[in-house]
């Protein structure tokens, strides 16, 4: 049997496009003060959320978000066939501890900040392939737990460089199902790892831009779609500099997305007023913007078809210290209001 759902080199087209039947997102205080404040299900006012460590707080964030999404899907947790999730912490402890109490078959993923698109891609494949009726795709990040793992202690008096981004405290979860009337996931373009030699872990936008551009170009070439087919092409957490670089690469490859190209890291904060330098980053960045703002816009019909391109910088504190460059990835998912 040959693979009949493939489209071009890196894209697959769903035969029975699965539906996003519910989504939920919980974010931290800073995110709740940004321009998307009304699109989140819950905004925390305490970074620890009553827990004794930031890692535990992140786990709780993930667990509560998954539970909320499943509740909004009006299904018992036991109906979930799989949970696909991951986070930024070493060995994905944020996720593993969150899922511990849920008693659902689980695949742990690591795609750094691309995890929302990665988990959504695989959930869609499982449902479209007839392996599951309900799958949860989720991811989280927490400013404080990420900061201590990847950078410096919170109270350390270092200066953030101008290209630095701010790790979003937030989690997003989506329930993908075989039954439902949209929004539908119709296409998935899986990215390749691209590394153009950027070593500065405080300039992840620049490191990830080529990966984002590559996946977007591949998607358009595989599907034969044009700019006019989309209302929005939204990247995960490139930030200001990364988005400008992506746009430049796309144009040099004859793809002009005009004003349809945007980035979740720019949408989530009021960059100037909140002093966010280049914008938001982290798994929770694209996840909370997708699960709140973007899916709401699609449901009410303000957008008919979007390409969600979550981007991930796949370095570790060890590789950074060893002066290695940053391998990056981007996965794209097409989300449509209705099937045409």
């Amino acid at each position: 049997m040959s693979a009949t759902k493939r489209l071009g080199a890196q894209t697959i087209k769903m035969q029975y496009p699965p539906t996003i039947i519910a989504s939920a997102t919980i974010v931290g205080e800073k995110e709740g003060k940004g321009p998307l404040e009304n699109t989140f299900d819950k905004v925390l006012d305490d970074a620890l959320w009553g827990e004794s460590s930031f890692e535990k707080a992140e786990s709780k964030l993930m667990r509560e978000t998954i539970m909320l999404a499943v509740e909004k899907a009006e299904q018992p947790m036991s109906n979930m066939h799989y949970i696909l999730a991951g986070d930024l912490l070493s060995q994905c402890i944020g996720t593993n501890f969150a899922v511990r109490e849920l008693e659902v078959p689980f695949f742990g993923l690591y795609g750094a900040c691309s995890t929302m698109a990665e988990s959504l891609s695989l959930a869609t494949i499982l449902v479209d392939g007839g392996f599951a009726d309900y799958v949860v795709a989720a991811t989280s990040s927490h400013f404080c737990s990420a900061e201590r793992q990847f950078r410096f202690p919170l109270a350390y008096g270092g200066q953030r460089t101008p290209t630095a981004q701010w790790t979003v405290t937030g989690a997003g979860a989506i329930v993908v199902s075989s039954n439902g009337n949209g929004p539908f996931i119709t296409h998935i373009t899986t990215g390749k790892i691209i590394d153009l030699g950027i070593k500065d872990a405080n300039n992840m936008g620049a490191a990830m831009a080529p990966a984002a551009a590559d996946t977007i170009l591949q998607h358009f070439s595989d599907t034969g779609k044009t700019v006019n087919d989309y209302d929005l092409v939204v990247t995960g957490d490139l930030g200001k500099l990364g988005l400008a670089l992506t746009d430049q690469i796309l144009k040099e490859n004859n793809l002009d997305l005009q004003d349809k190209l945007n980035d979740c890291g720019l949408l989530i904060y009021d960059i100037e007023a909140q002093d966010m330098h280049m914008g938001g980053s982290g798994c929770g960045c694209s996840a909370s913007v997708l699960c709140g703002h973007l899916l709401k816009e699609i449901k009410i019909g303000n957008m008919k078809r979007i390409l969600f391109v979550a981007t991930g910088a796949l370095m570790s504190p060890t590789s950074t210290q060893q002066n290695e460059s940053i391998p990056c990835i981007a996965h794209a998912v097409t989300i449509e209001k209705e099937l045409r």
Partner: peptide, 20 residues
């Protein structure tokens, strides 16, 4: 995507980087 060498891309990033 057309091929960029690491050097080419490094220069591109430098040109776009925010001036402090």
């Amino acid at each position: 995507m057309k091929k960029y060498t690491k050097k080419e891309y490094g220069k591109m990033v430098e040109r776009s980087a925010p001036k402090t």
